[in-house]
Computed example of a mutant assay.
Amino acid sequence: MMWRRRLLALGLAALLGATAMPAAAQPLVYLVRHGERLDLPTDPGLSPVGEARAQRLAAMLADAGLRAIYTTPYRRTMAHAAPTAQRLGLTPVVLPARDTEALLARLRAHGSGEAVLVVGHSNTLPAILRGLGYQAEVTIDEDEFDWLFALTPGAPGGAAPALVRLRY
């Protein structure tokens, strides 16, 4: 567990060190897809493997300085965010999965010194990343549940944000 925190810290330190210009008024955004789900036809919750993954996320982000957590109204995203929210004493903000603009407006309202978590879906996270200025293509396969993305803000004057991709 400790090696994962160190890896995350090292990756972010390297990334932040590489950005010479001051950060724009946008938070550090962590994005994850919900964990593995139960095999149910409608609005499935998390499987035991997905629940364990949600616990790992909570441990990894315990000291990340999160100020807010955003999820969609689906059981699997809310359940994935729950351990992190409980650990940090935060109440997740639930927004419709299809309303990317509302989420982006909320994210942009956070300052550059803040960090937030977004728990979404394989088909919503790429659009969120694009909306935050990351233009390289990001795809998440249907059987991938273990990506943790950390998007650092771009610099004023048009420098693009940088993305760190970790597996957890």
Score class of each variant (00 low, 15 high):
Pro73Ser: 03
Leu16Lys: 15
Glu36Val: 09
Gly11Pro: 01
Leu163His: 03
Ala20Leu: 14
Ala162Ser: 15
Ala105Trp: 05
Ala150Thr: 05
Pro41His: 07
Ala18Tyr: 11
Gly157Thr: 09
Ile69Trp: 05
Val32Glu: 01
Leu107Glu: 00
Thr72Asn: 06
Leu166Trp: 09
Tyr74Glu: 08
Leu8Gln: 12
Gly35Tyr: 04
Val94Asp: 06
Arg76Asp: 04
Val32Asp: 01
His110Ala: 02
Leu95Arg: 14
Leu66Glu: 04
Arg4Phe: 13
Arg76Ala: 07
His110Thr: 00
Ala62Phe: 03
Ala82His: 14
His34Thr: 00
Ser47Met: 12
Leu95Pro: 07
Gly111Asn: 01
Thr42Lys: 08
Met1Gln: 09
Arg67Asn: 08
Glu142Ala: 13
Leu10Pro: 00
Ala23Arg: 15
Val49Asp: 13
Thr72Cys: 03
His121Leu: 05
Ala68Ile: 01
Leu148Asp: 01
Glu142Phe: 09
Gly157Cys: 12
Gly45Ser: 11
Leu90Asn: 06
Arg98Ile: 02
Val116Glu: 00
Trp147Glu: 09
Asn123Met: 09
Asp143Ile: 08
Gln26Thr: 10
Leu163Met: 03
His34Gln: 07
Ala18Met: 12
Pro41Phe: 08
Ala13Lys: 09
Phe145Ile: 06
Arg165Met: 12
Thr72Leu: 02
Asp99Ser: 10
Ala155Tyr: 04
Leu117Asn: 04
Gly133Ile: 07
Gly113Phe: 00
Leu148Gln: 02
Gly89Ala: 09
Gly131Tyr: 02
His121Cys: 03
Met78Arg: 15
Arg6Glu: 12
Val164Trp: 11
His34Met: 02
Met60His: 11
Ser112Tyr: 07
Ala162Val: 12
Asp43Val: 01
Ala82Glu: 15
His110Ile: 00
Thr100Leu: 13
Tyr168Asp: 13
Leu125Lys: 03
Ala102Ser: 14
Ala64Lys: 11
Ala58Arg: 10
Ala59Ser: 13
Ala52His: 11
Met2Trp: 09
Asp141Val: 05
Arg53Tyr: 09
Gly158His: 10
His110Asp: 01
Ile128Ala: 03
Arg37Lys: 15
Thr139Met: 09
Gln86Arg: 15
Leu104His: 07
Ala52Asn: 08
Val119Cys: 10
Ala23Glu: 08
Tyr74Thr: 05
Asp143Gln: 14
Leu31Ile: 04
Val32Gln: 06
Ala85Asp: 11
Gly113Pro: 01
Tyr168Glu: 13
Val94Glu: 10
Pro156Lys: 10
Gly154Ile: 12
Val119Gly: 04
Asp43Trp: 00
Gly50Val: 10
Pro83Arg: 14
Glu144Ile: 14
Leu38Trp: 00
Glu144Ser: 09
Ala82Cys: 10
Gly50Asp: 08
Leu16Ser: 13
Arg76Tyr: 08
Leu132Ala: 00
Gly133Ala: 06
Pro156Gly: 12
Met2Thr: 15
Arg76Phe: 08
Arg165Phe: 01
Ala102Lys: 13
Ala52Val: 02
Ala79Asp: 14
